[in-house]
Every structure is written in C-alpha cells, then in structure tokens.
C-alpha cells in the first residue's frame, strides 16, 4: 500500500507557547512549568491538536487542496508529547474507492515519538477528483 509523505518535527516549549496563543488554549498543563512538574506527567505536555496538525500537514502534502475540501480525521490521543520530543507522522493508504468522478482514499495514520511509542493513531479519508493534478 502507498505510504504518505512523512512529517518529522521537534516539539519545544517555544512552539507550545505559540500554539497556546494561536489557539487560545492556555491550560496550565501546557504552559505552566510548575503545574507541569506537579502533574502526573512530571512536565508540561504539548496540545494534542498541535501534534495532530502534523497529520493535516501530511495529508496536504500528499493530496493537496482536496484535503481541506473533503478531509476527515478520526484520531485518539494515546500518549503525551513532551517538550524536546521528536515526533514522526506517517500514513498508509489502506483503501481506494473509485467513485463516479472521484477517488476516495482511506488511510491509517500514526504519530510516534523518538522512542517509537505511538502518541496518536487513527484514520483519515479524502476524496480526490479524477482530474485533480
């Protein structure tokens, strides 16, 4: 099965802070170092949707504009992502359904950390017109 374009990022406090500003989500588990230290995680963790954004980036790189017009995503947040973690986002096309004027791609997606642990997993789909260049 076809592999989607891989995305690799390093997560750091600076970008977690920027995401808090961009999203308006200032939950102290993300941005307050003392709160993070005292939490069960022992540190701050990245916003789940910040990490999930790499799935959208991968889908855009792989399928282009149809992603924003017809994309679906269903994911589970399985493990926290910490500042300093390196995440790798991958995907595989599981099924292609031929429609009248389009093709629907159904994919499995996964994000793993530098230790190979799955932090997010799930499925995506996108419908691509047959004349899409």
């Amino acid at each position: 099965m076809e592999e989607l374009t891989q995305v690799i990022k390093t997560v750091d406090r600076k970008h977690i802070g920027l995401y808090a500003k961009a999203s308006g989500d200032f939950n102290p588990i993300h941005v307050d170092e003392n709160f993070g230290k005292d939490s069960p995680f022992g540190d701050n963790i990245a916003h789940g949707m910040m990490i999930a954004a790499t799935i959208s980036e991968m889908m855009t790189l792989s399928f282009g504009s149809p992603w924003r017009e017809s994309g679906t995503m269903k994911i589970r947040f399985r493990l926290p992502v910490y500042p300093g973690d390196i995440i790798t986002t991958t995907g595989t096309v599981d099924k292609i359904t031929e429609l009248e004027n389009d093709r629907k791609f159904q994919c499995s997606v996964e994000i793993v950390n530098q230790d190979g642990e799955t932090v997010i997993s799930g499925n995506t789909s996108v419908t691509v017109p047959n004349n899409n260049s």
């Binding site: 916003h47 789940g48 949707m49 999930a52 992603w67 924003r68 017009e69 017809s70 994309g71 679906t72 995503m73 269903k74 994911i75 589970r76 947040f77």
Partner: peptide, 8 residues
C-alpha cells in the same frame, strides 16, 4: 484531550 473527529 482524549480523541478528536473532524470533517472538513
């Protein structure tokens, strides 16, 4: 955040 579903 436990899970997320999105449809664009």
């Amino acid at each position: 955040h436990a899970s997320q579903e999105i449809t664009f």
